[in-house]
Amino acid sequence: MEKQGYFLDQLCMIAVGAAYGGILVSMFYEARTSVGQQTLLSIVVGWIQMMILIGGIVLLILTLLRGVAVWQLSRQWDAMVTEAHSHACCHAEHGTDDHGHGHSHHDHSHGDHGHSHAWAPWRYTVLVFPLMLYLLPLNYDRLIRQFARDRAKEAGEHGPQVPLGAGIAEPLAELGLLVFAQDAWARSWACVASSFHMPESASLQWAIDRFDEQTAQGAEPFRPEFAVLENIGASEDQRTLWRSYRLVELSGLFEPAAGDPRVFRLVRLRTACCLADARPAVVVGISLRPLDVQAGAWVTARGRIDFRQFPDGRWRPYLRNAVVQPSQMPANPYIN
């Protein structure tokens, strides 16, 4: 009986260790082979993915060593038991004599010991649970995207509302640039606007927007870090500096804003270790025309950075005159 219980426990331990090692390694392999798709491994950031690979390999080696040792022990067991019996007879009296006082504590130490070494099926049941998640046919690409969008929505509910109808801060400076535009319409609007001294007019705004939208197609954009954008705009100097980038490109998950089909949010998750500590980072974008993009898709948006004071009093950047195109998932979907 003793032998069976011991070996059953050891075998279960080896089986669980091997299963975990195997799954950690195959999670890594799966993530490497499925490009542009999020897998179960994508719930943690890059360097922890490497740690998972290392952990899996270490676990497999440990299990292998333990397996060999237990196998050898099982072969020697019977020989040792017969020897042990003779020893047990000699020393039985010693045992009771020496530890007579120890028995007063028998009761509580027994309780602690019992579940640490007896064959305890509940522990292995618990241990199998995370393994099942890997084996179940769950689409983690969809789940993680849905998770990111949910976090963004929640942030939107609690956070300030998206502003609409913002104007450009320095129309006269824009006018100078517009005169050199390639688009004939934009040039003529600029000429008309300047000759009639109406830089503030809505039509000039229209021309500038149109010009911006056209330049977005050909030119090489500036690609700032998504994480940087969330925190800029506190000072006037910063805002002036960032406005001077005429064309920037950002990629993120597309999340339409309720109410207006031209307004959207680009969402990325700030993640230090895993999705349990993820917070959404959101940059608002405004397009000139209604957008028809599937919610939750990876997109790149090109436009220009402008700033606006949101209802909560903070200056935040937003993407103006944005052109949205579907794209691949970036190599590292998370920012920090």
Binding site: Y20, L24, I43, M51, I54, L59, L133, L138, L143
Partner: peptide
């Protein structure tokens, strides 16, 4: 996203993030 789906994202992320460190700790 229903609570079960959310659970399916958060639970493995806590477990699998800690696992390699537990393996190293055990080693």
């Amino acid at each position: 996203m229903n609570p079960i789906e959310k659970f399916l994202v958060i639970f493995p992320s806590i477990v699998f993030e800690a696992l390699p460190f537990i393996v190293l700790g055990a080693l």
